[in-house]
Design a protein around this nucleic acid. Structure first.
Lengths: 141, 141
DNA sequence: TATAATTTTGTACTCAATACAAATTTATAA
DNA sequence: TTATAAATTTGTATTGAGTACAAAATTATA
């Protein structure tokens, strides 16, 4: 159960992000904050429906989408629509996705310094930035 | 049109990766290598079907999946099934996805050093490793 | 040439995510 | 308070990326 202090905390986080703290939104954010895993929308829905029988699956998707837009949470996902492919023979580079025009740019980047330790054996690294590309930044004004 | 030298090059890349160089596989790899964009499977299919009317959409998906498995190309995509979410309030960390057990691990990582320049305005960074987690590495032997 | 193994093709299907409109809740005005 | 407007939630219908599967075609091996 979520205590009063935490509830106010969560409310403040929503308000600061410009989101009206409805019960459903608090519920979704509370679960995300308290769990250490990386749940999918359906993970959340399956879990939360237990104590909130009237909760709609669409609401969970709506909340998550809104939270990501407002920068409250991260979506561990890279391409907004479908998987994209990239010839790994090319020079190492990071990717940048523009939130406005949805293009993906190659960013020259030396990835060789990026390592995981502690027994993890990595064979692939992806570095992904999101934001506004130079063109869209100009147009915005 | 793809010239003879390139064709042999592509063939060698496939063979080295342990993939039999069928016409369809060469076609898909050739397009991926020559284009500078980050096409989706359907992008590829729509383009290649023009000159290869008998090409199947499934074949394109099969090729891409195989190429990624063999490390020939990268998929710019993070979660294998559906989008996962992550409270951004938590300490900055990278992610590691185990190819065997498909779990996603948090990896403590100082992301503050990761910057894009050149007029790109980034508000979000994702660093994603793929490979084998310590547990699965042990079990493997 | 026959047989086995691999690859391709095409149809049917799954399921995450979205569109949309009705119902409900919350805020604002009179 | 009551009426009205705005925002949110709900549920159904739909989309579309990706997969399962088996038949057809191709390629390798005996």
């Amino acid at each position: 159960m979520i205590d009063r202090y935490d509830k106010i905390n969560l409310q403040n986080r929503l308000i600061k992000a410009g989101i009206r703290p409805s019960i459903q939104r608090l519920t979704v954010l509370e679960y995300l904050t308290s769990c250490n895993s990386h749940p999918t929308a359906d993970d959340l829905y399956s879990e939360l429906i237990k104590d909130n029988p009237s909760l709609s699956r669409t609401t969970v998707f709506n909340c998550l989408k809104l939270f990501v837009e407002k920068g409250l949470i991260n979506d561990i996902d890279i391409s907004s629509d479908s998987t994209r492919y990239d010839d790994s023979c090319r020079a190492p580079h990071a990717h940048f996705m523009c939130r406005r025009c949805h293009r993906i740019f190659d960013i020259p980047f030396d990835m060789s310094a990026l390592k995981v330790g502690n027994g993890f054996i990595s064979d692939n690294v992806n570095l992904f930035f999101k934001g506004i590309c130079p063109e869209c930044a100009k147009q915005q004004n």
